[in-house]
Design a protein around this nucleic acid. Structure first.
Length: 569
RNA sequence: GCGCCCGUAGCUCAGUGGACUAGAGCAGCGGAUUUCUAAUCCGUAGGUCGCAGGUUCGAUCCCUGCCGGGCGCGCCA
């Protein structure tokens, strides 16, 4: 990619100019923010001059004299207080373009060191419907998994479903007293939710019910056959429904290892921690204290309740063991909401105490808020169901597709599905993961402007051109980039490589989303300015190559966001 | 009380690892098509980048304080 190439060339120029780089100083070249001066820029001379207390422009000149980029750039310049600017040559761009149309990875370099990365995301609870709150973890996690795989990592996706929580006390009691079997056959989750809510309400009114529920839970945890059977059925029913939703979303997991998978590991784990002196008993509960970590000094991590029950952190620790010991994970990424930041800091500290050096990363994200600006309450309050959102999205897309001509009903249905779900995914992924946002139907389901259909439409436009060619696609290396719109598109296409790698630097799919939007925007402008089919010779060939490259990058890029494309719309 | 995150156009949000006019979308206004299918394009209008200091040649971006909002802080997950 150009950024990496220019960076190493610039680095070499510093060395050739005999300039000693201070410890920790790295020469950086970035895509130009102001394209008036060039396509790439570096402020290395300015930042270095500051440290060395010399004149930045003079330093830049010294380096520029030694810079050898004639094979990449048609022009380099020193501007303003000492910016080094690079303008790519038409030849270099043309070469790059050809590569994008041929390379399996569209010119995106593979990582030098492949890592085995376990990504933990989505993690819905059994016996509860997925709601909009699951959108973020599911889509961000899925996208990061796709990007990590694409650049060469060995990724394991694991859905750590909540199949062993205290909610089962209520469900078990409800199952035995108020379950409607007919309703269960019809819509299992809906019936389980009804039961759960009903019992939950009972416990509020009657303490005795709460006690009964607790007893049911204890019996389950002790392996009571009846309760185990009910639990097994609940899990099976829920999983079936979950898989269906994931299928619709095109999200796939290598494993569905829920909390229950670690049940028999918890007691030995806690014993082990006590034996090693990592954990201690405090007020009857088993805790790990972090007295040497100031910010956690008064925030112990609880791993066993005074009644002997295990906790969230206990299961997570056992899960870490499994991922490290059995899966040989080099890294573990947790795509979980920001409110759980403290939990993960504690968890990682415990792992550290246990001598585990695997890199663990909490990829946090902000909350989806209701219209009142407060978090959707998953426990008591109402939230919007994920299925409901998807159905509505597909419906709205279908209304638009219905007016199109030349499409069969089946095609229309498929297009509406791709566009509807794509719109929902894009609405999430185009947003910075840390910002909270208010849930809005209109935003989530918009089909115009900066949305999935806008990007898919650009792809469709590339496809329709090749359809008109009717097989006559003979792209030759004979490229001449002359028009401004052609050049702008070529440069955008080349930046796919940088963007894809940047996504993983800070786990931000929205960088890719906004890149793809810009690419589509640039393509739409190119499309208006440069007619492809009516042009001739090398110009036509160049434009066709641009279309082909755009087509490939859009499809691949959207694919990395988990968004599918259609050939027509 | 302590900690974390956020505060950018009417609305919803990007962005900036320091450059002259801070970007999109939606909503508003004005244009473009007997097309390579307009879910498009072009133009226009709209912001003292929460407030106050500090560092710097230069800060929306870094530092400090404050204000506003969200979330978290021992037996839920």
């Amino acid at each position: 990619m150009f950024r990496a190439l220019l960076t190493s060339r610039l680095q070499a120029a510093f060395t050739a100019a005999g300039i000693q780089l201070p410890e920790g100083f790295s020469v950086s070249v970035v895509i130009a923010s102001d394209t008036r001066y060039g396509d790439y820029q570096s402020n290395a001379a300015m930042t270095l001059a500051k440290q060395l207390k010399t004149n930045p422009r003079a330093l830049a000149q010294q380096v520029a004299d030694k810079l050898d980029v004639t094979d990449l750039c048609s022009k380099t310049s020193i501007d303003g207080p000492g910016f080094l600017n690079f303008t790519l040559s038409a030849e270099a761009l043309a070469q790059r373009l050809a590569l994008i149309t041929q390379d399996d990875h569209f010119g995106v370099p593979q990582v030098e060191q492949t890592k085995r990365i376990v990504i933990d995301f989505s993690a819905p609870n059994i016996a509860k419907p997925m709601h909009v709150g699951h959108i973020r973890s599911t889509f961000i996690g899925d996208s990061l998994a796709r990007v990590a795989r694409f650049v060469g990592h060995d990724v394991i996706t694991d859905n750590h479903i909540g199949d062993w929580g205290t909610q089962f006390g209520m469900i078990l009691h409800g199952w035995k007293t108020i379950l409607d079997h007919e309703a269960l056959d019809k819509d299992p989750i809906q019936e389980l939710v009804r039961v759960y809510k009903a019992v939950n309400a009972q416990t509020k009114a009657d303490e005795a019910v709460l006690t009964t529920c607790r007893n049911e839970l204890v019996k389950l945890q002790q392996g009571d056959p009846d309760n185990m059977e009910i639990w097994t059925r609940c899990v099976a029913l829920s999983l079936e429904q979950l898989r269906q939703i994931y299928g619709q979303l095109d999200v796939h997991f290598d494993h569905y290892l829920g909390e229950s998978a670690y049940n028999d590991k918890l007691a030995p784990l806690v014993e082990d921690l006590l034996t090693n002196g990592i954990a201690e008993i405090s007020d009857g509960a088993t805790c790990v204290f972090f007295r040497d970590v100031p910010e956690l000094a008064d925030k112990p991590c609880l791993i066993r309740k005074s009644d002997g029950g295990f906790l969230y952190a206990t299961t997570d620790l056992a899960t870490i063991d499994h991922r490290i010991n059995d899966w040989m994970a080099d890294e573990i990424w947790y795509v979980v909401g920001a409110p759980q930041e403290l939990h993960f800091r504690q968890l990682f500290q415990v792992a550290k105490k246990r001598g585990q050096t695997t890199r663990m990363q909490h990829i946090a994200f902000g909350s989806i808020l209701g219209q009142d600006g407060k978090m959707f309450k998953t426990r008591s309050g109402e939230s919007v169901g994920l299925l409901e959102v998807l159905d509505e999205a597909v419906e709205r897309a279908a209304a638009v597709v219905a007016e199109r001509e030349g499409l069969t009903d089946l095609e229309k249905t498929q297009i509406a599905e791709v566009i509807g779900t794509g719109a929902v995914k894009y609405a999430e992924l185009s947003q910075h993961r840390m910002t909270d946002y208010k849930f809005s139907w209109d935003k989530m389901l918009a089909l115009q402007g900066n949305t999935a259909p806008y990007l898919i439409n650009a792809y469709v436009r590339t496809k329709s051109i090749f359809r008109k060619l009717d097989g006559e696609v003979t792209l030759t290396p004979d490229l001449t980039i002359t028009e401004a719109a052609e050049r702008a598109l070529a440069i955008k296409l080349a930046q796919f490589a940088e963007t894809t790698h940047d996504v993983l630097l800070d786990f931000r799919p929205n960088l890719l989303a906004s890149y793809l939007y810009e690419l589509a925007d640039t393509y739409h402008s190119f499309y208006e300015a440069c007619n492809v089919l009516r042009s001739e010779g090398a110009v036509r060939n160049t434009r066709l190559t641009l279309c082909e490259a755009t087509s490939r990058v859009l499809k691949a890029g959207l694919g990395l966001l988990g968004i599918r494309t259609t050939e027509r719309m």
